[in-house]
Structures are given as structure tokens and as C-alpha cells.
Design a protein around this nucleic acid. Structure first.
Lengths: 210, 210
DNA sequence: AAGCAAATCACATCTTTATGCGACCCACGG
DNA sequence: CCGTGGGTCGCATAAAGATGTGATTTGCTT
């Protein structure tokens, strides 16, 4: 039996899902609450395997509640079940330790399936949410080398900088003289429109040039 | 009609999925190939909406093929369909531009559903795969400020560094003398076990101190 | 009350970076 | 065949950063 606790302030929805979960064999709904005011106590005593968490709760939001749950019971899986497909909220929830993120329009059968998924180590996500997460990865590498027209050699140099090397170390590494390193760095600064090592490094990292 | 192209070297599997897709209304399988040797030509002439891509193909791997597809036809959605749930391969595929990642044990009905999902802007992922992706996010913020015992003032200073400011600018910003800035930076270097601005910045960023 | 860490400032010195100016070689395209 | 950009190197100077030594104040702990 998978023990589930559910936080949702909308009464109708809460009762609907409660009914659904109670009707599902292998699942045991051990608590359903309208807010997180007693969440520490509830998590401690009920020791759920899975927590279904709405985001827009009165008082402590569902996003704030996630780390609370994980702190008390790290093995408990928290799945967000909410209407927000807002990027910021998604990333906050994930960073806070949520293991799944479903939008409320998800059909009941899939919600139930997702509970099993999350309990056995998966991370069910509505396809929209998943796309936003993937895009986060892809954005990193999207702007590229071409934008600033850094040459291959210049990239070697800036990789060295981003690794924390001094000019001298980079020169040794690439078997060139320190003056050549300076020369390349001059060109890099021109192309990136910066004028210090720090700025160049920060820009290179932000733009994903390395 | 959603136009689909499929790359898979295993003949049985290819024929199975081919049958499945042909039997599905709204889907039009316009090509199924055992390798990527002519992929440029195929993508150009077939102009698929969705590409199903195996990873372990002879010659060019499926992962290498993703950017090729996206370069020729950016709006085409590529979905990986493979047996590998290896982290490295997942991230490579995603970074290369894949929009979905299903493991081959996925039931046929879900594969079909996933094709529709990916075509309308979602990112269907097997729950296992999704978990690995989420964990990547969560790993980021593990160690904290406390680990290095940086004081509040020292954090002010290092935030300045990470913003790309010079000592002088930081001094002005915080209304202290440049020698005080130097002094704080000395302490920061001690605590972080580094000995250059660059290293301090990189460490601060990596460890999420700022 | 003594001890201590954090925060402030000073001065000196050495190293690293930033930048200006110039030079040579090579490959590639018009 | 000549111009252009990339890659190589040198010299010189000024600014920024790293490091040693030391000092004062404040507030908290013992």
C-alpha cells in the first residue's frame, strides 16, 4: 500500500480526488488537508510515501512546503498537482525537491498512474511541463560560438580562463608564449565587448560559449 | 496529418512500429530507415513533423543525428525512442535538441500518444528519464553558504566579484575603503582555499554561494 | 574582564592583467 | 597576386589584484 497525503484548498477538488484515491486499490489516502498549517506534524505522524501538493494554498504555499516535507522525510516523494504551468513556479518546485509536476487537467486515471510512477522512482510530468524543463537545458547551449565569432584558438583561451588559469598557465598549456595569450585575449575582449578577465568569464559562462 | 519519419536499425522493431503508425489515423509514416546515411536528403524531401530516432544506429548515432535534423528543419520535433536510460545519453540528446525521450518498453498506445504530444509542443518522457532530468536540477543547490562560513560582509564582497566589479567599484558600492575590500578578499580566499579572484568567483558560482 | 571574530583601514611590495603599438607567417578568396 | 584574418611573438607602461604586516573598534562569548 502506498500512503498518500493530499494538500488542496479547493474543497470540491479535494473531495473529488479523495474519492478517486480511496477507490484505488494499493493506494491509501491517509490525509487530505486544505492548508499546510500543521504540515510538519502531519508528515511526521502520517509518514506518507507520496504527497500530492497544490501550489496556491493559503498561508504557506505548496512550493514552500516541499522543502519542509523533504527535510522531515527525505524519502517521501512530492508531486505537484496544480493549475500553474508558469515556468518560474515549475523551476522553484523542482529545485525545492518536487519529483513530479502534473497540471490539474490531467485525467484521473493518469493521476493515479503518476502516483505509482513517482513512488517507484519516476518523475511524471505533464508534457507541457516537461517541455519547459527541457528547454531550460537547451537554452544553455543555444546561443553559440558563432554569435561572437570567436575563433577556435580564442575558444581554447577562454576555456582556460573559465577553468581559472592564469595567462602563464594557459600559455604553458597551449605551448605558446604569454604575449600570444595576451594577444588572443585582446581579441576576445573586443569580440565580447568586455574589458576584464572577470567580465569575459562571466559572459562566456552566461552565453554558454564554453 | 502528422508526418513521421522513423530511424531504427532493428528490422523487427522497425516493422512493428511501422505497422503501428500506419494503423493510426492522423499519422502518416512517410519514411522508415535503418540508418542516417541519407538523413539530410530524407529530412529535406520528406519534411516530417516528427522524427522518431533510435540511438544505437550504425554510422551516425541517433544523438549525432538530432542536431542535423534541427539544423535542416528547426520546427521538426525529434523524439528519442531507445533502450538507453543512461544519463549521459539522455543529456546529450536533450542538449542536441531532442524534444522527447521514450524508452522502448513504452506500450504502443503511449508511443502514439507521445507523437501527438510532441507535435503539439509537449515533451513526453518516460518517468525514469524525467527523474534523471529533475535530479540534475536539484543537484545544483546542495552545498551552502554555511559550509565555508563566509560572513555577511564577505558575501557582499563576493557578490560584487561575481557581478564583475573591480575592488574599487566594490569599495564605492559598500562605502568602505579599497584596503578593506582587500582585507575581506584575503579572508574569503582563506575560507574558500583559493588564491585568485577568478578561482573565487568560479567556486562561488559552482557552490551556489551567491 | 579577558578573549575572539568581524569589520574597518593603512602601507608596502610583487605579480598579474590590460592595453597600445608593431611585426611576421600562413592560408584562403577575390 | 594581393588583401584579410587568424595565429604567433615582443616590448613597454599603467592599472588591478595578491599578499605580508599591523592596527583600531565593536560586539559577543566565556
Amino acid at each position: 500500500m502506498i500512503k498518500v497525503v493530499y494538500y488542496e484548498d479547493n474543497r470540491n477538488l479535494r473531495e473529488g480526488i479523495t474519492f478517486l484515491l480511496q477507490a484505488t486499490p494499493q493506494l491509501e489516502l491517509v490525509g487530505a488537508f486544505a492548508d499546510c498549517s500543521n504540515i510538519r506534524e502531519e508528515i511526521r505522524t502520517l509518514a506518507p510515501d507520496v504527497v500530492l501538493m497544490d501550489i496556491d494554498l493559503p498561508g504557506m504555499t505548496g512550493i514552500e512546503a516541499v522543502p519542509v516535507v523533504k527535510a522531515i522525510s527525505p524519502q517521501t516523494q512530492v508531486m505537484m498537482l496544480t493549475v500553474f504551468d508558469n515556468e518560474e513556479k515549475i523551476f522553484q518546485a523542482i529545485r525545492n525537491g518536487a519529483s513530479g509536476y502534473l497540471l490539474k487537467h490531467t485525467p484521473p486515471s493518469e493521476i493515479v498512474e503518476a502516483i505509482f510512477d513517482v513512488h517507484k522512482g519516476g518523475s511524471p510530468m505533464t508534457a507541457n511541463v516537461a517541455r519547459k524543463v527541457l528547454q531550460f537545458f537547451q537554452q544553455q547551449r543555444s546561443s553559440k560560438t558563432e554569435d561572437y565569432n570567436l575563433s577556435a584558438r580564442e575558444l581554447d583561451i577562454i576555456k582556460g580562463l573559465v577553468s581559472g588559469y592564469s595567462y602563464k598557465l594557459i600559455a604553458d598549456e597551449l605551448h605558446i608564449s604569454i604575449d600570444t595569450v595576451r594577444s588572443h585575449i585582446r581579441h576576445i575582449y573586443d569580440k565580447l565587448h568586455v574589458n576584464s578577465k572577470t567580465e569575459a568569464i562571466l559572459k562566456a559562462m552566461k552565453e554558454g560559449l564554453v
